Amino acid sequence: MTSVDPAILARLHAQAFAAPWSEVEFADLLNQAGVFAVVEPDGFILVRVVLDEAEILTLAVRPEARREGLGGRLTGQGALAAAAAGAVRLFLEVAEDNTAARALYDRAGFRQIGRRKAYYAAPDGARTDALVLGLDLRNNPDKAPLP
């Protein structure tokens, strides 16, 4: 993958999330083996590949650019790049109450394989479960993610 500016990722992430990651955090992640980003002007996906498994670390789309297919394109591009890097399974965690993200991942073929109780903390201290989703990158003919 080409070089990615952590400052750009941090700016996009801050527009997409109430608790954004910092430029330093993105720089640290991008310096790790197997971590790559697919970046477009209005969003990005950050993926880590370790051996034959990959994980979507974060997917960020500016609010003004949502519901236009960018999240699906980034998910598909990330899945294809992970498969090209040798991954056969792709995982992620999503907040149980994030219905928009859950619908996006469902359309891409992800299925729930687990749950992390009280994984996410809201600013008010409330806790939300994370759903662990997985996608088989080898055999997913009906809902293969597309760039």
Score class of each variant (00 low, 15 high):
M1W: 15
M1E: 13
T2G: 09
S3R: 09
V4Y: 08
V4F: 07
D5W: 07
D5T: 11
P6E: 07
A7V: 02
I8W: 06
I8H: 12
L9D: 08
L9H: 07
A10S: 09
A10T: 01
A10P: 08
A10M: 09
L12T: 01
A14F: 10
Q15Y: 08
A16H: 01
F17K: 00
P20G: 04
P20H: 10
P20I: 03
P20V: 03
P20M: 12
S22N: 12
E23M: 12
E23L: 03
E23P: 08
V24M: 02
E25L: 02
E25M: 10
F26S: 08
F26V: 09
A27Y: 06
A27P: 04
D28R: 13
D28I: 02
D28S: 04
L29D: 12
L29S: 07
L29F: 14
L29H: 13
L30C: 05
L30I: 10
N31R: 15
N31G: 14
N31K: 14
Q32I: 00
F36S: 13
E40M: 10
P41K: 07
G43A: 03
G43T: 04
G43M: 04
V47R: 07
R48T: 05
R48E: 01
V50S: 06
L51P: 03
D52E: 14
D52I: 10
T58A: 11
T58H: 02
T58W: 11
A60T: 10
A60I: 14
V61D: 09
P63M: 01
A65Y: 05
A65H: 13
R67L: 04
E68T: 01
G69I: 09
L70Y: 01
L70K: 01
G71F: 12
L74D: 07
L74V: 12
T75C: 07
T75R: 06
T75H: 08
G76N: 13
G76H: 02
Q77W: 07
Q77I: 01
A85R: 15
G86S: 05
A87P: 11
R89F: 06
L90Y: 06
A95R: 15
E96L: 15
N98M: 03
N98H: 12
T99A: 15
A101K: 12
R102Q: 02
A103L: 00
A103D: 05
Y105G: 00
Y105T: 00
D106P: 00
R107F: 00
G109P: 06
Q112W: 00
I113D: 02
G114C: 01
R116H: 03
R116Y: 05
K117M: 09
A118H: 13
A118V: 05
Y119T: 13
A121S: 01
A122E: 05
D124E: 03
A126E: 13
R127E: 01
T128K: 12
A130T: 15
V132S: 01
L133Y: 11
G134N: 06
L135E: 06
L135A: 05
R138H: 03
D142V: 15
A144T: 14
P145K: 06
P147D: 07
P147S: 04
